[in-house]
Amino acid sequence: MIKVINPNFFCAKGGRFNLLRLIILLLPMGNVMVRGQSAWLPEPSRWEVALSYTFETFDEFYGAGQKMDYPERIDQHTAGIFLDYGLRSNIALDLRLGYVRTTDKGRTEDGLMDTLIGLRWKLVDEFSQGREWMPSIALRLGGVIEGNYEVGFPSAVGDGASGFSGSLLFGKTFPKGFGAIGEVGYLWRNKNVPEEYFVTSGIFRRFGQRLDLSLSYRLRRSVSGLDIGGPGFTASRFPELKEIAHNLDFTFGWAGKSGRYYSFTLARTIDGLNTGDKTIVSLAASFSY
């Protein structure tokens, strides 16, 4: 179905065509698909279930060399569920599902977001080897199954593409409650969506028995692709944009009783290309069975 947009939107005062507004309207929301995996696997035969709610919003975006205003604020709400299962002491399965809803200028769109599935294989356990410096290391092989959201309008929530990924996860604990994590990976998707690599690094500290504070940096970077308004770019090739997003997030976590865990995260996009300047707030609760 063709959705008509008021063409006067593209006309500035005096009736002159506003190319900038056209470009702005073509811009994606910003791809902040954070994976949040851990090199520390759940115990064998144990489930870990997490429920989360995330709110994202932006009214500016990162264009070529500068940040620009977006004409309307876009809000996105996501409800997610994560399932982790310890298959063996060194193998775990994971599944991420979510429902996403966006509002853009009073219009609401929703659907099932891309589903992530994965298998993690622990290669090194820092706790059962003798090298002081060695972290826990796990290999993750994952799949992306495109969601059932509609595409073809400004606030569509995804690229509508499936694919697979590979990554190495790192985790290291230190005395006094400190720790660090990291992930380096690569993602391939179909439908001409550019391949990308992603990097995560973070530090945390456990205060007492229950309180965790953490700070993480996350990068997602397409290895190829078009720039808005650059050579070869047309509106029909929008999913082929080269997208770069640098994000920082701060998390407050609380370890409850019986394996429960609660977290509050505040994240911001700090730089990028062809991506929105997002503010993100997320709440999560996890349970262990």
Partner: peptide, 30 residues
């Protein structure tokens, strides 16, 4: 442009899925 806007996917994929790094659950690091 309106025609193109109405038939192409204009937004990026995915959504932030919350939760920062935390200590391993089955080990007591301290």
């Amino acid at each position: 442009s309106v025609f193109f806007l109405s038939v192409v996917d204009l937004a990026a994929s995915g959504s932030y899925i919350g939760g920062g790094p935390r200590p391993p659950r089955q080990i007591k690091p301290e």
